[in-house]
Design a protein around this nucleic acid. Sequence first.
DNA 1: GTTTTCTTGTTGTAAATACAACAGAAATGT
DNA 2: ACATTTCTGTTGTATTTACAACAAGAAAAC
Lengths: 223, 223
Amino acid sequence: MERLEKYYNQIKTSPVFYGMSDDELKGLLECFNARIRKYEKEEMIIRQGDIISNIYLILDGEVNIEKDSYWGRRIIISRLGQNDNLALSFVGSKNIESSIDAITVEDTLVLILSYEKCTSMCQNACTRHKILINNLFQILSKENIELIQKIENVSQKSIRDKLLTYLSNEARKKHSNSFDIQFNRQDLADYLNVDRSAMSFELSKLQKEGFIKYDKNHFELLS
Amino acid sequence: MERLEKYYNQIKTSPVFYGMSDDELKGLLECFNARIRKYEKEEMIIRQGDIISNIYLILDGEVNIEKDSYWGRRIIISRLGQNDNLALSFVGSKNIESSIDAITVEDTLVLILSYEKCTSMCQNACTRHKILINNLFQILSKENIELIQKIENVSQKSIRDKLLTYLSNEARKKHSNSFDIQFNRQDLADYLNVDRSAMSFELSKLQKEGFIKYDKNHFELLS
DNA sequence: GTTTTCTTGTTGTAAATACAACAGAAATGT
DNA sequence: ACATTTCTGTTGTATTTACAACAAGAAAAC
């Protein structure tokens, strides 16, 4: 169990608490029974089938949102990091089982808020709750848009098009044609739903043809 | 311009207004400058690049959420119908351009609420707004979960697996192994990101092998 | 510093898919 | 009732991809 105070300044910067005064935030953390938990590398934070009644906020580390297909193949839905939330949509849809796993990629620190507890206590009446729900609405909106973009990435017909779409979208997000990506090759292949070796081959073809340049996780879009 | 009163009873049943009294709903419709608009078949309600500041609620009809890839291929992200919302996530993420088109599949009736107008007027202070934002949060949660399911559908590696995953998910939604699907063959192919003829071929193979039975848009899962 | 493990790129082959073309069925319009 | 258009299934071929196996390089462990 880590101490809340140590991370207070970072917690304050999370979109979840945007627009709250220090007093409101402190009250909220108490009301929500906030606690910090440390997860080891490759530990499961959330499993398919779990009922989620907590808000999970990543303070530090990286987490994969994954799904196993019936036939055992791994699908990476997204990679989350600092200040991202886990499985927020399953908090909003009460009593719906999680359809995803959340698995740490490295040692990860998570702030956990008991959403049920607070909503039952204050009946959504307090100011901080009003701010919170507004923030959650906006966070979910962003997540939604990200999911649509992921659908665009994986919906291209060839490996080449998937790569170019993914890299273009990353470049736009990072506001630069030169950027690092978060995935290694195997994870990128599982994210784009293609075979790793075929993808590697396509990457070096794209480089030979002068469309991109890359070194490990650093990529550059040319032309 | 259609008259609101005519559709009032249906509007009342929408998840957007769940938990509101008649008075609150009436006040809200006024405050939000509610109006009804009719769209013809294959008309665009929302275009990529639009800034969305209205809540769109489908009263009657069907709408495709689509995206054109760089190379002109059509991607169907989802098919929406009665009581569904359009592009809600772009209302929540202010000043973000829509990354999708919303195109009617048939003549469609839409309730339009000016979200900006109300939030600026009441500063989110009125009871009905509090109920509303709670409802929107839940609606977005559901949309989010649907998108994850769509990702599962299209992330299968073969056409066969995509079809079986899609059909299983539909069966679960409809609580029956015998059900109608909303897509025709071309639209289903654009939804699953596969070639229509290859998909047709795979469907009849699945039928011959005894896994499914189908006639037009009616499907049955066997075994 | 050496060994071991993990990651990435490369190649050949088998399998799956896209694409094009077409025919019959169904739906639509007149 | 007929003509026209749209939708669906079928087939052959060219292309793309998955899969397996392996080698070189980097990172981690000893």
